[in-house]
Amino acid sequence: KYTPEEIEKLKELRIKHGNDWATIGAALGRSASSVKDRCR
Rank of each mutant, 00 (worst) to 15 (best):
A32L: 04
A27Q: 12
A32R: 03
G29F: 00
E12D: 12
E5N: 07
E5L: 09
L28W: 00
T3G: 00
K1G: 09
K36C: 11
S33I: 08
L13E: 02
K9Q: 12
I7L: 14
T23F: 07
H17E: 03
I15A: 15
N19K: 07
E12R: 12
I15L: 13
D37T: 14
V35A: 05
T3H: 06
H17K: 02
A22D: 04
A27K: 13
V35N: 02
P4Y: 07
R40G: 15
G18I: 00
A26H: 10
I24A: 06
G29K: 06
L28Y: 00
R30C: 12
S31V: 03
D20G: 02
R38V: 15
R30P: 05
C39E: 08
R38A: 15
E5W: 01
L28C: 05
C39L: 08
S31G: 04
L10A: 06
G25Q: 04
H17N: 03
G18C: 08
A32P: 12
E8K: 08
D20V: 01
K16T: 14
L10I: 13
A26L: 10
S33T: 13
G18L: 02
S34Y: 07
D20A: 05
D20L: 00
I24K: 03
K11G: 10
E8H: 11
S33N: 14
A22I: 12
N19E: 15
R14I: 10
L13T: 09
K36H: 12
R40Y: 12
P4G: 11
A22R: 10
T3A: 00
K36A: 15
R30I: 08
W21G: 07
N19C: 13
D37G: 04
S31H: 05
E6Y: 02
C39H: 07
A27S: 08
A27C: 08
I24T: 05
I15N: 15
D37M: 13
R30F: 02
R40N: 13
H17G: 02
S33D: 14
S31D: 12
I24W: 00
W21R: 05
K36M: 15
A32D: 03
I15G: 14
S31W: 01
A32Y: 01
E8I: 06
D20Y: 00
K1N: 15
S33E: 15
G29T: 03
R38M: 14
Y2Q: 13
N19S: 14
R30E: 14
I24L: 08
W21C: 03
K36N: 08
I7G: 05
A27D: 05
Y2D: 08
D37R: 15
S33G: 10
V35Q: 03
K16N: 11
E6N: 02
E6H: 06
K11E: 12
S34K: 00
G25L: 01
T23I: 09
P4H: 06
V35Y: 00
V35E: 09
N19R: 07
S31P: 11
Y2F: 15
C39A: 12
K16S: 07
I24H: 04
K1W: 00
R30S: 07
A27P: 02
G18R: 07
G25N: 02
C39M: 10
K9V: 03
L28N: 03
A26T: 09
A22V: 12
L10V: 07
R38I: 12
W21H: 07
H17F: 08
G18Y: 01
H17V: 01
S31F: 02
G18M: 08
K11H: 10
I7M: 11
K36R: 14
R30V: 09
L13P: 00
K1P: 04
K1V: 07
E6Q: 08
E5R: 06
G29L: 00
E12P: 02
V35R: 00
A32S: 07
G29P: 03
P4T: 14
K36F: 05
T23Y: 04
A32G: 06
R14V: 11
K36L: 06
I24F: 01
K9C: 06
K16W: 03
S31M: 03
K9T: 10
H17I: 00
K36P: 04
S34H: 05
K1A: 08
L10S: 05
L13R: 01
K16L: 11
E8T: 12
L10C: 00
R40L: 15
I15V: 14
